[in-house]
Amino acid sequence: MLPASLIFLCIVIAPIFISGYYSTLEWDGIGKGVFIGLENYKNLFFGDRNIFYGAIWNSLLLAALSVFIQLPIAFMFARLLAGGIAGEGFFRTVYFIPVIVSTVVIGQMWLKIYNPQYGLLNQFLESIGLGNWKQQWLGNKDIALGAVFVPLLWQYVGYHILLFYAGIKTVPQELIEAARIDGASHLRITFNIVVPYIVSIIEICVILAVIGSLKTFDLIYVITGGGPLHATEVPTTLMFNTLFHRVNYGSGSAMAIFIILECLILTLVIRYIFGRLSYDN
């Protein structure tokens, strides 16, 4: 245990505290930092022309979509797969492929799909006679956010399918058979037996989906870089920009600390809600 704890302490816990310290400095990362207390946090939340709230809102929206759209889709597929359809193993693998592929590759692929001149999506719309539906998917600030959410949600569906699938497989077959003999419909079995049985898996999936959404970075960075005009900015892309382009380590660290706290608090809230749920049951 000791070596593992040490490494965990050095690599995970210590940097968090160091970031906490940096967030109280006005520092360009090279010279000497000046201690300015909570000034960075003040600027973050009450500064002029604030774009941080927009970024937080985008990430919360993504978290909500993830929980209420991505997870139900994943559950549906998992239930179908676990019900023993033909080619179960094949589909399980296929759905999981986007999870294994590097995010940068996925980002590049979707860039090609969305490209306004030769992109797959516009070409497809054109070919089925919906030419006037063609869009500047990533160049229009009103639809860019929706356009980056699609690959984000799509990529990790397979991951949740696998978790749900494993959960559903643990539901005792005799329970389901007994219910079926008593005349329960497929839907009824799903909601009265399967869902309550795997509620702990659902909790894990919800936590992973929410946390994953709040700290999402790579795919957005590759596809839009937070643009156009900050339309797809999330806290992590802002943080990266603040740290490495604006060379403001204090403010960037304050954002990092905010993201950590945000994740912690939301995790606690979700656990509380699920705790109540299982208590009620």
């Binding site: 969305y114 490209n115 306004p116 001149q117 500047q136 998917w137 990533l138 160049g139 229009n140 600030k141 860019a144 839009t224 643009g227 156009p228 005009l229």
Partner: peptide, 15 residues
């Protein structure tokens, strides 16, 4: 070009 804010350097140069 339409959607200029969504094109990167390489994509725009290719046009």
């Amino acid at each position: 070009v339409d959607g200029a804010l969504g094109l990167d350097y390489n994509e725009s140069g290719a046009l």
